[in-house]
Protein backbone atom coordinates (compact mmCIF):
# COMPACT_ATOMS: atom_id res chain seq x y z
CA UNK A 1 0.00 0.00 0.00
CA UNK A 2 1.31 3.46 -0.82
CA UNK A 3 1.92 5.78 2.10
CA UNK A 4 -0.40 8.48 0.82
CA UNK A 5 -4.11 8.07 1.24
CA UNK A 6 -6.96 9.67 -0.60
CA UNK A 7 -8.77 11.94 1.83
CA UNK A 8 -12.23 13.25 1.06
CA UNK A 9 -13.89 15.97 3.10
CA UNK A 10 -17.64 16.02 2.60
CA UNK A 11 -19.46 19.28 3.34
CA UNK A 12 -23.24 19.16 3.59
CA UNK A 13 -23.98 21.98 5.99
CA UNK A 14 -24.59 25.67 5.39
CA UNK A 15 -22.23 28.21 6.98
CA UNK A 16 -22.92 30.42 10.06
CA UNK A 17 -26.10 28.66 11.26
CA UNK A 18 -23.76 26.15 12.88
CA UNK A 19 -19.99 26.05 13.26
CA UNK A 20 -19.47 22.80 11.31
CA UNK A 21 -18.48 24.44 8.01
CA UNK A 22 -15.80 26.64 9.60
CA UNK A 23 -14.32 24.01 11.88
CA UNK A 24 -14.20 21.49 9.03
CA UNK A 25 -12.35 24.00 6.85
CA UNK A 26 -9.81 24.28 9.68
CA UNK A 27 -9.26 20.52 9.44
CA UNK A 28 -8.70 20.73 5.69
CA UNK A 29 -6.11 23.49 6.14
CA UNK A 30 -4.22 21.61 8.86
CA UNK A 31 -4.54 18.34 6.93
CA UNK A 32 -2.93 19.90 3.86
CA UNK A 33 0.44 19.80 5.65
CA UNK A 34 0.29 16.00 5.80
CA UNK A 35 0.76 15.56 2.05
CA UNK A 36 -2.12 13.23 1.45
CA UNK A 37 -4.22 13.35 -1.71
CA UNK A 38 -6.97 15.69 -0.67
CA UNK A 39 -10.36 16.40 -2.22
CA UNK A 40 -13.46 18.21 -1.00
CA UNK A 41 -17.07 17.67 -1.96
CA UNK A 42 -19.88 20.17 -1.52
CA UNK A 43 -23.29 18.53 -1.44
CA UNK A 44 -26.77 19.64 -0.31
CA UNK A 45 -26.63 22.82 1.82
CA UNK A 46 -22.83 22.50 1.77
CA UNK A 47 -22.89 24.38 -1.56
CA UNK A 48 -23.97 27.50 0.37
CA UNK A 49 -20.53 27.49 2.03
CA UNK A 50 -18.90 28.64 -1.21
CA UNK A 51 -21.54 31.13 -2.32
CA UNK A 52 -20.15 34.50 -3.44
CA UNK A 53 -20.84 37.73 -1.61
CA UNK A 54 -20.85 36.58 2.02
CA UNK A 55 -20.70 39.50 4.45
CA UNK A 56 -20.97 38.81 8.17
CA UNK A 57 -20.16 42.36 9.28
CA UNK A 58 -23.61 42.92 10.76
CA UNK A 59 -23.46 39.67 12.70
CA UNK A 60 -20.12 40.51 14.24
CA UNK A 61 -18.77 37.04 13.53
CA UNK A 62 -15.92 35.98 11.30
CA UNK A 63 -16.54 35.74 7.57
CA UNK A 64 -14.49 32.70 6.68
CA UNK A 65 -15.44 32.51 3.01
CA UNK A 66 -12.19 34.23 1.84
CA UNK A 67 -10.34 31.27 3.36
CA UNK A 68 -11.69 28.97 0.64
CA UNK A 69 -9.76 31.05 -1.90
CA UNK A 70 -6.53 30.12 -0.09
CA UNK A 71 -7.13 26.39 -0.56
CA UNK A 72 -5.31 26.41 -3.91
CA UNK A 73 -2.13 27.61 -2.16
CA UNK A 74 -2.44 24.60 0.15
CA UNK A 75 -2.59 22.23 -2.84
CA UNK A 76 -6.25 21.55 -2.18
CA UNK A 77 -7.51 21.91 -5.74
CA UNK A 78 -9.95 19.07 -6.24
CA UNK A 79 -13.20 20.67 -5.21
CA UNK A 80 -16.26 18.81 -6.38
CA UNK A 81 -19.68 20.41 -6.32
CA UNK A 82 -22.70 18.22 -6.97
CA UNK A 83 -24.76 19.55 -9.86
CA UNK A 84 -28.03 18.19 -8.46
CA UNK A 85 -27.47 20.13 -5.23
CA UNK A 86 -26.87 23.36 -7.19
CA UNK A 87 -29.91 22.74 -9.41
CA UNK A 88 -32.18 22.04 -6.44
CA UNK A 89 -31.18 25.41 -4.96
CA UNK A 90 -31.47 27.35 -8.20
CA UNK A 91 -27.73 27.99 -8.30
CA UNK A 92 -25.07 27.71 -10.98
CA UNK A 93 -21.30 27.70 -10.79
CA UNK A 94 -21.40 31.47 -11.46
CA UNK A 95 -22.95 31.95 -8.03
CA UNK A 96 -19.94 30.30 -6.39
CA UNK A 97 -16.57 31.68 -5.33
CA UNK A 98 -14.03 31.68 -8.13
CA UNK A 99 -11.55 29.22 -6.67
CA UNK A 100 -8.26 28.87 -8.56
CA UNK A 101 -4.96 27.09 -8.25
CA UNK A 102 -1.67 27.17 -10.11
CA UNK A 103 -0.86 23.87 -11.80
CA UNK A 104 2.83 23.15 -11.24
CA UNK A 105 2.70 20.37 -13.84
CA UNK A 106 1.48 22.83 -16.46
CA UNK A 107 3.92 25.75 -16.12
CA UNK A 108 1.93 27.17 -13.19
CA UNK A 109 -1.10 27.86 -15.35
CA UNK A 110 -4.04 29.17 -13.35
CA UNK A 111 -6.90 26.69 -13.30
CA UNK A 112 -10.32 26.29 -11.74
CA UNK A 113 -10.41 24.22 -8.57
CA UNK A 114 -14.16 23.75 -8.70
CA UNK A 115 -15.54 20.94 -10.80
CA UNK A 116 -19.28 20.61 -11.06
CA UNK A 117 -20.08 16.90 -11.22
CA UNK A 118 -23.29 14.90 -11.48
CA UNK A 119 -24.44 12.61 -8.68
CA UNK A 120 -23.27 9.64 -10.67
CA UNK A 121 -19.81 11.13 -11.21
CA UNK A 122 -19.56 12.11 -7.56
CA UNK A 123 -20.59 8.59 -6.49
CA UNK A 124 -17.68 7.21 -8.50
CA UNK A 125 -15.27 9.77 -7.05
CA UNK A 126 -16.39 8.90 -3.52
CA UNK A 127 -15.82 5.23 -4.25
CA UNK A 128 -12.14 5.89 -5.02
CA UNK A 129 -11.37 7.49 -1.65
CA UNK A 130 -9.57 5.86 1.25
CA UNK A 131 -10.82 8.01 4.11
CA UNK A 132 -13.99 10.10 4.29
CA UNK A 133 -14.25 12.92 6.83
CA UNK A 134 -17.66 14.31 7.73
CA UNK A 135 -18.48 17.22 10.01
Amino acid sequence: MSDTKKFMYINRKAPYGTIYAWESLEVVLIGAAFEQEVAMAFVDDGVYQILKGQDTSELGIKNFSPTYSALGDYDVNKIYVEKESLDARGLTVDDLLDLKYEDEDDDWAEKDSIQVVTSQELAEILEQQDVVFSF
Partner: peptide, 17 residues
Protein backbone atom coordinates in the same frame (compact mmCIF):
# COMPACT_ATOMS: atom_id res chain seq x y z
CA UNK B 1 -3.91 19.59 17.71
CA UNK B 2 -6.00 18.76 14.68
CA UNK B 3 -3.02 16.95 13.23
CA UNK B 4 -3.96 14.12 15.58
CA UNK B 5 -7.19 13.62 13.65
CA UNK B 6 -5.37 13.60 10.32
CA UNK B 7 -2.86 11.15 11.74
CA UNK B 8 -5.73 8.92 12.89
CA UNK B 9 -7.01 8.99 9.30
CA UNK B 10 -3.59 7.98 8.00
CA UNK B 11 -2.71 5.35 10.60
CA UNK B 12 -6.07 3.65 11.08
CA UNK B 13 -7.53 1.00 8.80
CA UNK B 14 -10.95 2.56 9.30
CA UNK B 15 -12.10 6.02 10.37
CA UNK B 16 -15.62 6.09 11.81
CA UNK B 17 -17.26 9.47 12.39
Amino acid sequence: GLGQLIEAGIQSDRLVV
